[in-house]
């Protein structure tokens, strides 16, 4: 019996190893794992989180007084979309740019506003050497550049995080603030903050 145990144990162990390797899976709507995107894999912001933060803000924007006035205006106002400032501890600039591209499409298709091309804005920022510096988020600079491209309003915001560690756990509280600002007067016509928390717990 003892003679059989060790070889059997080795056999079971090797089989278990062979069967338990990683494998690729498909998930999301229309697949057999529709909830694959729902699980949190880290404290970073994934697509699910960013979509939620953006949609929460946009729903408020489209039902705001400022937006209702845009819809009633004889001519749709011209709107510029500026980069969302990333003040978090996560590398999400690419995801933010993707979301802004989606936002640009939604706004263009709504017909409520005329949207200045983000590509043109990027070129202008680069021309004056603002790319990659915080000056591209500076209200005075943004207002000046928005005026140059003919915008009457601009949409901007920032995403921030409070990152804490204690007792072997880590918690990150994210907030996305979106603002709609009038170029000429710098008056904030809309502002809203959405929140999401991610954590690694024991």
């Amino acid at each position: 019996m003892i003679r059989l145990r060790l070889p059997l144990l080795l056999l079971v162990a090797s089989l278990a190893t062979a069967c338990s390797g990683p494998k690729a899976v498909r998930g999301g709507p229309g697949t057999d794992r529709p909830d694959l995107d729902r699980a949190a894999m880290s404290t970073g912001l994934d697509r699910e989180d960013l979509n939620y933060l953006f949609q929460e803000n946009l729903e408020r924007l489209f039902t705001s007084r400022a937006w209702q006035s845009f819809r009633r205006a004889p001519q749709p106002p011209v709107l510029a979309i500026w980069p969302i400032r990333n003040d978090t501890t996560e590398h999400i600039d690419n995801q933010l740019n993707t979301l802004l591209a989606t936002l640009e499409t939604q706004l263009v298709e709504s017909g409520d506003v005329l949207v200045v091309s983000r590509e043109r804005q990027r070129e202008m920022a680069q021309e004056v050497g603002l790319q990659n510096t915080n000056a591209v988020y500076d209200p005075a600079t943004v207002a000046r550049l928005s005026k140059q491209v003919g915008a009457q309003y601009y949409l901007t915001g920032k995403i921030q995080a409070v990152d804490e560690r204690a007792h072997g756990e880590r918690r990150v509280q994210y907030t996305l603030t979106l603002q709609l600002i009038e170029v000429e007067t710098s008056i904030i016509h809309f502002q809203h903050t959405s929140v999401r928390t991610k954590a690694i717990v024991r």
Binding site: N86, D87, T88, T89, H91, D93, N132, T133, D163
Partner: peptide, 12 residues
């Protein structure tokens, strides 16, 4: 030359 990425690491 990615100052934005460098800022993320600086915050971390």
């Amino acid at each position: 030359g990615d100052l934005s990425g460098a800022r993320v690491e600086a915050r971390r």
